[in-house]
Design a protein around this nucleic acid. Structure first.
Length: 904
DNA sequence: CGTCGGTCGTAC
DNA sequence: GACGTACGACCGACGT
């Protein structure tokens, strides 16, 4: 120990531990007003003030580690100052509602942090702090505040600290800065007044003058005695006029030292934080950074993990799995694509934390059971529908296992799907994020476990012990996360949707993906050749028309040619306004003035078909099955729809003749036909149901052509007199309604003046008043609750519904209107998929469901069964739910997807 | 050489 | 700024 250390030790001995007196209310307000943007949880609960105060407290605790703390709060309601001056703070607006809401949360955080807090009726936080400064005479005090009023408390053992600005003010610094002792500051404040507290002071005297006067005269009392000595006449008269009130102003700015609070320092000893409560609070409030920094990782007990390497252990685990109330499983494989993956190992978790890893294909890893033997022992349990299974994205494991000869049955839960239902707008539902958020546990990543490998990461190369820890942790964490999510699903009314629709759907989707759809590879190759030739020719024409070669695929280069070189008039800017747009609308307009735009449009059409569809699809044909196996993603869209990727089979062209040539390459297997069944106008029917609009209900109940009927309404003609043009307009209006379109958008779409478009919208709402009412009620409900729901309780949060920026708010309103309609349609077709699947399985039909395209199901059916299956599918789809209007399904069969003619 | 935002275009 | 939900190709800037 050198001399300095020794001196510090002596000093620590000599001085009692400092007491931190924290002005909670000043930080509450500062956080609220200093941060401009609105911070909320996903569900719309305001969090800005809670976050600000928590950050400040965390900084204090982290940097100073105080032993004694008191957090002081302003009392609600009037204080003693109102008693002596009724106008005190009279022009201060009431605490904003969204700040008021946060106060209990702030208090909970402070409590959970283990910090004693004080709120005394009739007093402000400043008074509590002043009283404690007075009472705790034997202790140094650090007043933590950003409020200047507290400078009057400075003294030999009292220092002021603002952790947010990191400014320290002590007695000496104050004297240097003002030339006054702290207790004289109240004289200065009495003179200058305080507008925010509605203390007028001396009109015309600000802080500068007040400070000078007190410095010159020594105190307010001396000033009042010798007011005649003030040289400036104006100032003298002002002070004379205010003299009678100044003692009152001084009483108001003087802090009370008689607040009834404990005077013993032990009352303010800091307690250990309640980490579980903090974890729950921070999770609820979405404070992920603080969660990471402040709350220690929840320990996951790895001691209970076991590697299964021999027959006895395998049998033991198979037997325990058979009796499991919920068997969590996870497969380790060679690929993220389940149709290509080979099994490397399986982890199981039955009762957390007990978990096992069964390696089957690790490289040079010591004793290891064979895949065949593991399947033999475990297969029956996995295939037993009465043993409930849980996984994270268990559809993946379901497919991998099936491809290894194991039919996984009894899927009872999936954490990815559960998380999705709780907040479908959330970006990531992967296990690592879920464990972090719901368990406060940081998982080992795949990257970490395969670190050090050269080339493409390969799980087979991971040493078994390391792989076991990783794989068991996955199964274990999945089980724990599910335990946390289930109560939330129940609380939010999502449990039935989860158990009865989304979870059973996993199995159906897995079988659809495995079935795949036959695509004519030779046909694609022929199209590729044809398109290549035509594209080359077009490219030459384009370069000739442009007068120079350039990359036609580059909007930026094209924009230079069109607008700089050829001096064509610029249309709109792009969405981000970084360049002049060259989209189809602009090019169509320009086509009247130059030959180039039309050529580019033709090029773009063909290039899109070639790159996205011909080449994209060709790459996706599975080498073994010769079919295309898309992924149906169940946890992606914000509304509840499925999405499809790798490849996306939900946007195969249909509108143009050229596009339908691609669609025609989707074929039925030999001896089969493709059957397509689609809901007619499902979105508008859902709207009719929700709105209860009499005219809309009547139209659908009458089986009318809804676009024709709408045209008749908005053009005020008999339905028989509706022209194709009128019907087209009405159709656009109908779609626009569902998306919340404006007159501007409709005008652009229809290429009519905005005034005319507004006329269509006005007449629409006049004829369908229930629709307008529904929209208003939906937006109001979103504002009220922060979310909207579908018919089956699916929820979507609309956090921006109260945004102050109009465009943001209006976008949220359109979202709120659209989500229940689109989402309910999604509910309906998901339910239909389950019912159709049940019917097919019950009938022992060989038909297989292949695709879902939002309102359409595509099946592959043995030709002989076509008529019977069509009847069953139509019947099941139409009876899936009883709405206020009938659900109508159009159905047809054909040799390929383009050749299907629909009829009722 | 990979990542990522921007633009464009396909579907419902 | 102005029509909701997706996926994906291509370009080009940027970072390794």
């Amino acid at each position: 120990m050198d001399k300095n250390d020794h001196r510090d030790a002596v000093r620590r001995e000599a001085f009692a531990a400092p007491v931190f007196l924290i002005d909670g209310s000043s930080y509450l307000y500062r956080a609220y007003f200093a941060i401009r943007q609105d911070l909320t949880t996903r569900s719309g609960f305001p969090t800005k003030a809670v976050l600000g105060v928590t950050n400040m407290l965390w900084k204090v605790l982290r940097e100073k580690d105080p032993a004694y703390v008191a957090v002081a709060w302003d009392a609600k309601g009037p204080t003693f100052r109102h008693g002596i001056y009724p106008d005190y703070k009279v022009n201060r607006p009431a605490m904003p509602d969204d700040l008021q809401l946060q106060v209990p949360r702030v208090r909970e955080v402070v409590e959970a942090l283990g910090l004693p807090q004080l709120e005394v009726p009739g007093y402000e936080a400043d008074d509590i702090i002043a009283t404690l400064v007075e009472r705790l005479r034997d202790h140094p005090v650090l007043v933590v505040s950003g409020d200047k009023d507290l400078q009057q408390l400075l003294g030999p053992r009292v220092t002021l600290w603002d952790p947010m600005k990191d400014e320290v003010l002590d007695l000496e610094a104050l004297r240097r800065r003002t030339g006054l002792d702290p207790e004289r500051l109240r004289d200065v404040m009495a003179l200058s007044g305080d507008t925010s507290d509605n203390i007028p002071g001396v009109p015309g005297v600000g802080p500068k003058t007040a400070l000078r006067l007190i410095r010159e005269f020594g105190s307010l009392d001396r000033l009042l005695e010798r007011v005649d000595e003030i040289p400036q006449k104006g100032l003298r008269e002002k002070i004379r006029a205010a003299a009678g009130d100044l003692p009152l102003w001084r009483r108001l700015v003087t802090l009370a030292t008689d607040v009834p609070v404990p005077g013993e320092v032990e009352a303010y000893r800091r307690r250990p934080p309640d980490t579980e409560r903090l974890r729950a609070l921070f999770q609820e409030l979405g404070f992920t950074r603080l969660l990471r920094e402040m709350v220690p990782d929840q320990r996951i007990d790895e001691a209970a993990y076991e590697v299964v390497r021999d027959e006895a252990a395998l049998r033991d685990w198979a037997e325990r799995a058979r009796r499991a109330e919920l068997l969590t499983l996870d497969t380790e494989t060679t690929s993220e694509i389940p149709m290509q993956a080979r099994l490397v190992g399986i982890s199981l978790c039955i009762t957390p934390p007990a978990a096992a890893y069964i390696p089957v294909a690790h490289d040079g890893a010591g004793p290891q059971l064979s895949l065949e033997r593991v399947i033999e022992a475990l297969g029956p349990v996995l295939a037993d529908p009465d043993v409930p299974k849980l996984g994270q994205n268990i559809k993946y494991d379901r497919i991998v296992l099936a491809r290894h000869g194991v039919e996984l049955r009894g899927i009872a839960g999936d954490t990815m799907v559960a998380s999705y239902l709780l907040d479908p707008s959330r970006r990531r539902h992967n296990l690592n994020d879920l464990a972090q958020e719901f368990l406060g546990h940081t998982m080992t990543t795949f990257k970490e476990v395969t670190a050090g490998q050269t080339g493409r990461p390969d799980f087979r190369k991971v040493p078994v012990e390391k792989a076991a820890a990783y794989a068991c942790e996955d199964a274990h964490a999945t089980a724990l996360v599910h335990e946390r999510l289930v109560p939330r699903l129940k609380e939010h009314g999502l449990w039935e949707l989860y158990r009865e629709i989304e979870v059973p759907l996993i199995e159906v989707l897995a079988r659809m993906e495995m079935a795949g759809i036959l695509v004519d590879a030779e046909g694609l190759d022929r199209l590729a050749d044809e398109f290549a030739e035509r594209l080359a020719a077009l490219e030459q024409d384009i370069h000739r028309a442009a007068g120079t070669p350039f990359n036609v695929n580059s909007p930026r280069q094209l924009s230079e040619i069109l607008f700089d070189r050829l001096k064509l008039p610029k249309g709109k800017k792009t969405r981000k306004r970084t360049a002049a747009s060259t989209d189809v609308e602009v090019l169509t307009e320009l086509a009247e003035r130059h030959e180039l735009p039309a050529l580019v449009l033709a090029y773009r059409n063909l290039a899109k078909l070639r790159s996205t569809y011909v080449e994209g699809l060709r790459r996706m044909i599975h080498p073994e099955t010769g079919r295309v196996h898309t992924s149906f993603n169940q946890t992606v869209t914000a509304t509840g729809r499925l999405s499809s990727s790798e490849p996306n089979l939900q946007n195969i062209p249909v509108r143009t003749e050229e596009g339908r040539r691609i669609r025609a390459l989707f074929r039925a297997a030999p001896g089969h036909v493709l059957l397509s069944a689609d809901y007619s106008q499902i979105d508008l029917r859902v709207l009719a149901h929700y709105s209860g609009d009499a005219a809309l209900l009547a139209a659908f109940r009458a089986g009318a052509d809804i676009h024709r009927r709408t045209a008749a309404e908005i053009f005020d003609v008999h339905p028989d007199l509706v022209t194709p043009e009128m019907r087209r307009v009405a159709k656009t209006v109908n779609f626009g309604i569902i998306y919340g379109m404006s007159a501007y958008g409709l005008a652009k779409e229809l290429r009519v003046p905005q005034k005319e478009a507004q006329g269509f919208i006005d007449r629409y709402f006049a004829r369908y008043p229930g629709v307008r009412r529904y929209m208003e009620e939906t937006v109001a409900a979103a504002r009220e609750k922060g979310y909207v729901t579908t018919l089956l309780g699916r929820r979507r949060y609309i956090p921006d519904i109260g945004a102050r920026v109009r465009s943001v708010r209006e976008f949220a309103e359109r979202t709120a209107i659209n989500a229940p309609i689109q989402g309910t349609a999604a509910d309906i077709i998901k339910l239909a998929m389950l019912r159709v699947d049940e019917a097919l399985r019950a009938s022992a039909s060989r038909a297989a469901m292949l695709l879902q395209v939002h309102d359409e199901l595509v099946l592959e059916v043995p030709a002989a069964e076509a008529a019977a299956v069509a009847r069953v599918v139509k019947e099941r789809m139409e009876s899936v739910m009883e709405l206020a209007v009938p659900l109508v399904v159009g159905i047809g069969t054909g040799p390929d997807w383009a050749a299907i003619e629909k009829n009722g």
